[in-house]
């Protein structure tokens, strides 16, 4: 046996080095991008944009709509993820693909689809008799939910996959009803995955731009959200504000990740 085949030989070290180096490329690239953003020379202070009422409104609107969208996404994703994880319904592959589409297609397409839908008879009925969505705040929530629910469904399915189906069965032999088994066992045991799903849904909704801009427009003090503000500031040549708002968005998402992942006991780093 040559030295290259021994435990700790150069073949093993070469493999580890190659895998390690490849694994480092993506996080390093992300870190470099964030660093560039933070280090770019600017004249305004980190808190300067907050003096503008329109930016403060956009921030508040972003927080409220993205939280609403995250809750709605989770409400839609829990049953969908559960059914995909537990049952093989007829046509489940088609449903699976359909639920994947919002991730695969450009977000703008969803905005276009929403605009078209609200031009149809059922869409017009909803607009006139139930709730106005087009170019309105409920529309922001709707557009954000459509994008973020797709991610939430994936994570919810994974969370339920991680709970053996037999746990619910055993719970039933112990006297639990179907609902009790779902609530006390399946939902409780998948809670850390569901929190992850909520978090991802929230960050996706918080950062979504394309479908919201297309479906609701970017009207100052009305339908402008923080991601739209970055676009607006950039388009009028206010690079400082665009940069600072981008940093704020990144920081908020990072703090949220830290808080939630820290609380769920998963490794933060």
């Amino acid at each position: 046996m040559g030295p290259e085949n021994r435990v700790g030989g150069w073949r093993g070290r070469a493999f580890l080095s190659l895998v390690g180096a490849s694994a480092a490329i993506y996080p390093l690239a992300l870190a470099a991008l964030l660093l560039c953003l933070a280090a770019y020379p600017r004249e305004a202070s980190f808190f300067a944009p907050w003096s503008e009422p329109a930016i403060r409104h956009a921030f508040l609107l972003s927080v409220v709509t993205s939280l609403a969208a995250a809750f709605l996404s989770l409400a839609l994703a829990i049953p969908s993820g559960y059914v995909l994880s537990r049952y093989r319904i007829p046509g489940w592959r088609l449903v699976d693909i359909l639920l994947y589409l919002p991730i695969a297609v450009p977000p703008l397409v969803l905005g276009v689809a929403l605009l078209i839908f609200f031009q149809t008879a059922p869409g017009r009925f909803i607009e006139h008799h139930l709730l106005a969505f087009t170019f309105a705040v409920p529309g922001i929530i709707l557009a954000q939910t459509l994008v973020s629910a797709a991610y939430a469904v994936r994570l919810c399915k994974l969370a339920f996959d991680g709970v053996p189906q037999k746990h619910a069965g055993v719970a039933r032999t112990l006297g639990a009803t179907r609902w009790q088994a779902f609530w006390h066992i399946e939902l409780a045991e998948s809670r850390s995955g569901l929190v992850e799903a909520f978090l991802l849904a929230w960050t996706t909704a918080f950062g979504s731009f394309g479908p919201v801009a297309l479906f609701c427009g970017i009207t100052r003090m009305r339908t402008e959200i923080l991601s739209s503000s970055i676009f607006l500031e950039f388009s009028i040549g206010n690079l400082d504000n665009a940069l600072i708002l981008s940093l704020w968005m990144g920081s908020i998402a990072a703090v949220a990740l830290l808080l939630v992942r820290g609380r769920t006991g998963k490794p933060i780093w």
């Binding site: 037999k166 746990h167 055993v170 066992i185 409780a188 045991e189």
Partner: peptide, 13 residues
């Protein structure tokens, strides 16, 4: 009926 499944399936957490 008391059921003790293979691998026990205790409720985790």
């Amino acid at each position: 009926i008391g059921y003790v499944p293979q691998e026990y399936h205790l409720f985790s957490g």
